[in-house]
């Protein structure tokens, strides 16, 4: 896949989220529509992935899990990127909305990431003969996941809502910054010890299915993030007292 494709995906996700917040008329229906379209796309994905696409040359039918595994990991990365965007935005200008969106994207990201890693592990067992390998991709994803699990735990263990928002934004930035360094260092460390071949010889049919899987998951990502955001917002409004009303009229002294 071309190098710009993750950026293009991120741009689409960002576009959807921004539209949702910027255009009030889309707020009620767009995420629901996205979920419905996602379900339809999923049905097609099942057909394409299980029947239409030929078995992979080396991995046979096990390789079909990649059509879901890869999109899951991509969605996870997109969600975390949105999360760090929210964190930076929150530190620049405080807003309960950005905090709620940060909570939502982190949780959805962890969900996609956990699914992705799990499927990766299932795929690795018959392919590499082990459940786990010191592959930079795998380690970076696992570290990323761990770092955001820590982020979510930290959120739930901090009581004061304002401090929680500020601190988790800081934690998000510190965690995200480490991701490229982790990737780089693990690849370097690994390449000096053993060379892991992860041949990605996808033919054009498989590439189409992979892309279709990504589009499908993108619909779900958007729908999940919006739904989780609304839950976060309603929790906020029930936890936080409403701003006080104007003071009582004072008796003139």
């Amino acid at each position: 896949m071309p190098f710009w494709s993750p950026l293009a995906l991120l741009a689409v996700a960002l576009g959807l989220v921004i539209t949702h917040f910027a255009v009030p008329t889309t707020r009620a229906w767009m995420w629901k529509a996205s979920a419905v379209v996602g379900l339809g796309a999923l049905a097609l994905l099942l057909y394409l992935g299980l029947i239409w696409a030929p078995p992979e040359a080396f991995m046979s039918d096990v390789g079909r899990i990649l059509y879901v595994h890869v999109p899951f990991v991509w969605m996870c990365m997109i969600a975390f990127t949105l999360n760090v965007g929210c964190a930076i935005a929150y530190l620049m200008k405080k807003s309960w909305r950005t905090d709620a969106l940060a909570e939502s994207t982190a949780e959805i990201g962890v969900m996609f990431g956990a699914g992705g890693v799990l499927m990766g592990s299932i795929w690795a067992r018959p392919t590499w003969g082990v459940w786990w390998d010191w592959d930079p991709r795998l380690i970076s994803t696992a570290v990323m996941l761990l770092s955001y699990v820590g982020y979510l735990a930290f959120r739930s263990f901090t009581e004061d809502p304002e401090r929680r928002a500020t601190w988790s934004a800081a934690a998000s930035i510190l965690g995200y910054v480490s991701l490229p360094i982790v990737w780089f260092s693990v690849r370097w460390w690994n390449s000096l010890h053993q060379v892991q071949s992860t041949s990605q010889s996808l033919d054009s049919q498989m590439r189409i299915v992979m892309w279709w899987g990504t589009v499908t998951m993108l619909f779900f990502l958007f729908a999940f993030v919006v739904k989780r955001y609304e839950i976060a917002r309603s929790r906020q409004s029930s936890a936080l007292e409403a701003p006080p009303e104007a003071p009582r009229q004072e008796v003139a002294a």
Binding site: E159, P161, L240, P243, P244, A246, P247
Partner: peptide, 15 residues
């Protein structure tokens, strides 16, 4: 001036 302390308002519209 109002100040929220945790979920509560500790100071309300003080001038």
């Amino acid at each position: 001036v109002s100040k929220r302390f945790g979920p509560r308002w500790a100071v309300s519209r003080l001038s």
